[in-house]
Design a protein around this nucleic acid. Structure first.
Lengths: 362, 362
DNA sequence: AACAAATATGGAAACGTTTCCATTCAGGTG
DNA sequence: CACCTGAATGGAAACGTTTCCATATTTGTT
């Protein structure tokens, strides 16, 4: 058994005593072949341990049978799950998944897309800092490479699989309001590089306004402070009037619980918290986390499904957003009665999705 | 602006009025070229928006500049982080990452490896159910494709980046013992498909024995029950004599806390819990989780680094395991005094890593 | 001024496929 | 028996590179 470094179809044809065209036809079941030569070719292929060179095939067919996928980081479980969803959908097709990540850097985003394109991927599935102004993505589009977005709100020219962050955030504001909260805060990480967080803030802000609540305090946490509960506690202490915090993800929400504990505050008596994403651990906490449940895996699946039909010549069409669901939890309750709703500075209004805000408020 | 579907080096050469060989030399800075033709070629390439076809290159050089990576699932944050580590290490090289996942199925493992090999990856980074008996992995090895393992203990023929699960688990047993615990349990998911969990159990078991403690109770949780705290509570209730649980990952450890709460038990007074992995959330809990901290990201990085040197012709050599660290947490304390250490059935001894067990105990 | 050496260039082969086309051969029809 | 149809086959081109080799040009040395 000599596992020759490279056994090509030429070797097979030689051993089977036929032309490579015939061997190709046998091996692919394409075109007519006699039973006798079929037998010889198959035996030769088996003996030699032949397998097709995907590269040779790709060159000749100009189809790489590869899908490129870009997300900010796999260290974020939400994106990791989404990529797994893509993968799950791709299993069973002949497509392979080429991945890349940008670490939330829009320059890296562009470079990554370019690289994927030069690898001649047949399609793209991307979540990036700013897809609407990525030259590389536009170029890919011009070259006819179908692209499917994940997590992003719809953009002209692309299909996207997403959850309506704006609406979900409005839901949270509504529940805060119904509980009797008025002064609220919105806590996020990396607002500048996450349209998701911005959209959540916009929706939250819009609904607070619509209900006559003061504008929510916008609290942005630095990457490093996210892992320093005492830092977060100090920030919370500086906002003693807030009775409810909407955190842009569940990890932050749990960090808020911790920070509150450090301050001697009791959740939800002294501070209500609602998270976003719906991670399982939230259910297991001493005080189970109220949150918005989303479906990252489904998001990936849907993006992949759309892309597959597009790559098979179909048209990329925009589906409705995936559903979200409010998960009740003990971190949300009515605020303790402490009536001081007087003059406080309002947070600045949302900058980016202003149109949407105005639109939805009517 | 006609972004022609495909602009090849031939087009560039034509536009620059030179041969393709010359164009290639200019574009690659390989071989001598005159300043004048250099100028023309570069301008033509720019005008046409030329970029190399990775496929054409791959075919001619028989290097795909692609690394294949297989993990059980990206939905497990530990693997996702490791893959991100691989990615981080690959950024800056010219290698791209092709990923696949098996969902903890060894047949799927093999199929995935085969697919990656037929895609002609230049190297492999894998975590699978049973690398030591994967035909596809062996085949890849025979074909001269370097492979680097992640999370697995060393195996003949492959380099691996791992943490010494056996030793880490012994550490936990030792701490249990020092706190005064005697009757302990080991809680895991998917024992059959996770050599990591098996090694942890083996180490835990070995050290318990070495210290004259009763064999730990081996509790395996089904996939679905992992999300049902009441189910886990029932199981714990059936083991009322246990004073400490070592959970094979932090999620399970947190689930144990929840289950204990359901039973009205107080952690750590009525039950101590130690987890594994060292996720950040553990620090934020009301009762911070004691756990073994590991470094999945570094694991991925190390695997990638080794592989890179191997692919550049170097030799794949086995590095020492990555360090682990016990993170103290309030979930571990001395058991409440309740002296009843009498006749109980011992769990069955570990089946797989028996040799290692015996060896280390002397 | 003659010649060697270095520099610059392009043709062509090779990488592994698939597919178009032409060729051969068998069998069936008139 | 001549003819046609259809099946079976293999040669060769094409996909986009890089690189070997041969040729043509320049430069430098006596």
């Amino acid at each position: 058994m000599p596992p020759k470094a490279k056994v090509t179809i030429k070797d097979v044809a030689l051993k089977a005593g036929c032309g490579i065209a015939t061997a190709s036809r046998v091996l692919n079941n394409s075109g007519p072949t006699s039973a006798e030569v079929r037998e010889r070719v198959n035996r030769a292929a088996l003996d030699l341990g032949f397998s097709f060179s995907a590269i040779g095939r790709a060159l000749q067919s100009s189809k790489s049978m590869t899908v490129g996928c870009l997300v900010p980081s796999l260290a974020n479980p939400v994106f990791a799950e989404a990529v797994q969803g893509v993968q799950n959908e791709l299993v069973g097709t002949n497509y392979q998944l080429l991945i890349s990540s940008s670490n939330y850097d829009d320059k890296a985003d562009d470079a990554a897309i370019s690289t994927l394109v030069s690898k001649e991927v047949d399609g793209l599935i991307v979540t990036m800092v700013a897809p609407e102004r990525s030259p590389a993505l536009k170029l890919a589009h011009q070259r006819g490479i179908p692209a499917s977005l994940m997590f992003h709100d719809p953009i002209k020219g692309f299909a996207t699989s997403y959850v309506d962050n704006f609406e979900a955030a409005r839901d949270v504001a509504q529940r805060f309001s119904e509980c009797g909260h008025r002064r609220t805060g919105f806590l996020a990480l990396r607002l500048a590089t996450s349209d998701r967080s911005r959209n959540r803030y916009a929706g939250f802000h819009a609904e607070c306004r619509a209900r006559g609540m003061p504008d929510p305090a916008l609290i942005e946490l630095s990457e490093t402070d996210a892992n320093r509960p005492e830092k977060l506690a100090a920030i919370l202490a500086a906002h003693p009037d807030l009775t409810a915090i909407f955190a842009s993800n569940d990890f932050l929400a749990i960090a808020v619980q911790k920070a509150a504990r450090l301050l001697g505050w009791i959740v939800p008596r002294d501070l209500s918290v609602v998270g976003f994403d719906g991670i399982e651990i939230g259910k297991l906490l001493d005080v189970p986390l109220a949150t918005i449940e989303t479906m990252p895996e489904k998001m990936g699946r849907q993006a992949a499904k759309s892309l597959l039909t597009a790559m098979q010549g179909g048209v990329l069409e925009q589906l409705p957003p995936l559903p979200f669901r409010f998960r009740a939890g003990a971190t949300l309750a009515a605020p303790r009665a402490k009536s001081r709703d007087d003059g406080r500075v309002a947070a600045q209004p949302p900058s980016v999705p202003l149109i949407k805000t105005i639109l939805k408020q009517g």
